[in-house]
Each structure stands twice: as C-alpha cells, then as structure tokens.
Amino acid sequence: MRNAEATRERILEAALEEFSSYGVAGARVDRIAKNAGCNKNMIYVYFENKETLFKTVLQKHLARVYEENEFTPEDLPGYAARVFEYAMTHADLFRLMAWYGLEKSVIGDLADRSSVQEKKLQMIADAQDAGQVGQTFAPGFLMTAIMALATAWTATNPFGPSYDRNAVERLDETKEAVATAIRLLAKGEEGSAKPTR
C-alpha cells in the first residue's frame, strides 16, 4: 500500500510541473510518467484521464493554500499580505491557476473551490454586519480586489511586472503597499453606495 501511495504522490508532483508548464492541452502523459518513474498506465489507473489528473493536482494545492493561509475577514489586509507572499513563492501554482482559467471549459468547475469562495464571501458579509469591515464595497468586489492585488506581481500576470518592474526587487515594500490598498478598500467610505450582495 505504501508503494501505491508513493507512486501516486510522484505522479502528482510530476503532473504539477508538467501542467504548470504546458497546461492540459500541451501536457503529455508520457512525460509525466517518465518524470514520476512509473508506467504510463498507472496514471490512468489512479486518475482515469488527463483532465481528472489536472483537477486533482489543482485541488490538492488549493487545499494546501487554504490550510496554510487562514482567511481572516476581520483583517483583510493581513490576509492579502499572506496571499502576496504565497503567490511570490509558489510560481508553479499560479501558472497552474492561469492554465485553469484558460482551459476551464475543458476541465470543468472545481466544486471545493466554489464552496470555499462562498464561505469567504459570507464571512466578509458577516464582518460587514459586525462593523469590522466597511460596507462601501460588496464582499465579491473585496475578494476580487484582494486576489487581484495580491497576485498582480506573479510571473503570469501581464500588468504588475510590466507597470512596476522594480516591485519584485522590493517585495516587502510591495507587500506593504498591497496591505495598505486593501486596508483602504476594506475601510470604505460611509455615504457611498451600499454593496450589492
């Protein structure tokens, strides 16, 4: 049983590298098997097809992100700073996410991801109701802003690195700027339009 689990883990590691480099369409099961040191048929035994393998890899790494980066609706700037740090040190995952966005019609939705997103939106709404977060912006807008800003300087983003070329050399300063921007957005301005939930 240990050998089977070890083989499965080697396949998942090799698949992360392959999919983050080539996406689903460009990935080759032969290369994944070679890099995992296993027979190509084992991939189909464990994962049925390439699309299921991609989803399994992505879900595994997203689960790790959720576990390692606690969502704190009462401290959205701190959460944004943690996401920024994670994004800047896990380029392979963010390349994988970019491929997921491009090939979602072939791969399909990730059920776990949707439920986590809904939970976060509800937590922000609850924090707004408790007065911990301003109500200027809707929860969905705030989460989009957090994720967009926190991941803007990853290699897969076409804007951050091109507009602010030196930001990667000043990671602490950039992280603080991201946190400050989210602090201002989360505070909001009273008297502005109410969020639509």
Rank of each mutant, 00 (worst) to 15 (best):
M1Q: 13
E9I: 05
I11Y: 04
E13Y: 02
A15W: 03
Y22W: 12
Y22N: 15
G23Y: 08
V24W: 07
R31P: 03
A33Q: 02
A33R: 03
G37Y: 05
C38K: 08
K40T: 14
N41P: 03
Y44T: 10
F47E: 08
E48A: 12
E48L: 12
E48Y: 09
K50T: 08
L58S: 04
Q59F: 03
L62S: 07
L62H: 14
N69L: 15
P73S: 01
L76H: 00
Y86D: 15
A87V: 05
M88S: 04
M88F: 03
H90A: 09
L93E: 07
F94P: 09
R95Y: 12
L96R: 07
M97R: 10
W99V: 07
L102F: 10
L102E: 15
D109H: 14
Q117P: 00
E118A: 10
D126P: 03
Q132E: 14
V133D: 01
A138V: 00
A138P: 01
F141P: 00
F141I: 00
L142F: 00
T144F: 00
L149F: 06
L149G: 02
A150S: 15
A152D: 06
W153D: 14
W153E: 15
P161R: 09
Y163N: 11
A167Q: 11
L171Y: 02
